[in-house]
Amino acid sequence: MTNQTPTPQSPGQIITTESGRMGRVAYARIAPNEDLVQGVEKMCLAEGFQNAFVRGGLGSLIDASLGGRDGGYQQVSGPAVEVVSIAGEVRSGEDGTLMASLAGIVADPEGNIHGGPFLPGWNPVCMTFEVTLEEWLPDTPDAT
């Protein structure tokens, strides 16, 4: 049974919980010049995942665009911006559209470290990017 009871953590913030189980695991490669975020969404579509967690990745980006806390963004110029760490999830909306929410840490060519959410459409893969996805199967309200 899904438990989506809002739990206030601080003013203006609501946390929800969801029960379910893990499903299949997919390992795949995102091609050069393809956007990292959109590539993960395409992988989920290809595997039939409606919801998934990004369990890891390895590769580099031509350039990186990361969101900032102030609503702005930071552009990390390459070539070959290395992705040091990546995590996130893909969720299916009510209309079935998949939306990936990915965050990570990247290193620019000089070795400076930057972090934040990857902005969809602005993170082209350099050579290749390997990613591991794990399917999430939320419980349905009418499941027994």
Rank of each mutant, 00 (worst) to 15 (best):
I30S: 09
G96H: 01
I62D: 13
S60V: 08
G57L: 10
G121P: 14
E41W: 05
S92T: 09
T5C: 04
D139F: 12
A46Q: 15
R55W: 11
V84M: 14
T128Q: 09
V131N: 09
P117C: 06
F49I: 03
G67W: 02
D63A: 09
F118G: 08
W136E: 07
V40A: 08
G20A: 07
P8L: 12
A31R: 10
Q4S: 13
D35W: 02
V40F: 09
Q75H: 13
G23Y: 07
E34F: 07
W136S: 03
S85E: 11
S101I: 13
M22I: 09
V76W: 05
E110G: 06
R24N: 12
A103Q: 11
M22F: 14
P8N: 07
K42W: 03
P138A: 06
E18V: 12
E135Q: 15
V76Y: 06
V37L: 01
M99F: 06
E47L: 07
V37T: 03
F129N: 02
A52M: 08
L133T: 11
V81R: 03
I30R: 00
G93E: 08
P138I: 02
L66N: 01
G68D: 07
A31G: 00
E94H: 10
T140Q: 15
S60E: 06
N3C: 11
M43C: 00
G88K: 01
L119W: 06
R69C: 05
D35C: 03
E47M: 13
G39H: 03
I113K: 00
S65M: 14
D108W: 11
Q38A: 15
P6F: 03
S60Y: 04
D108L: 12
T7V: 15
L66P: 01
Q38G: 00
E94K: 10
G88F: 09
G56F: 08
G72Q: 08
G56K: 10
D142W: 15
L66E: 02
L61Y: 09
C126M: 09
G48Q: 00
A143K: 14
G48H: 03
M22R: 09
A64T: 04
L119R: 08
C44E: 00
V125F: 12
S92P: 01
D35F: 05
F53M: 14
I113F: 04
I62W: 13
G115D: 14
A26H: 00
E94W: 10
R24T: 11
I113H: 03
G78I: 10
T97A: 14
P32S: 05
V76P: 02
E89V: 11
V131P: 08
E82H: 12
L36H: 03
R21M: 10
F49H: 05
L119P: 02
G56R: 08
I105S: 07
I62V: 15
I86A: 03
A26F: 04
A64P: 07
L66I: 02
Q9M: 11
G56E: 04
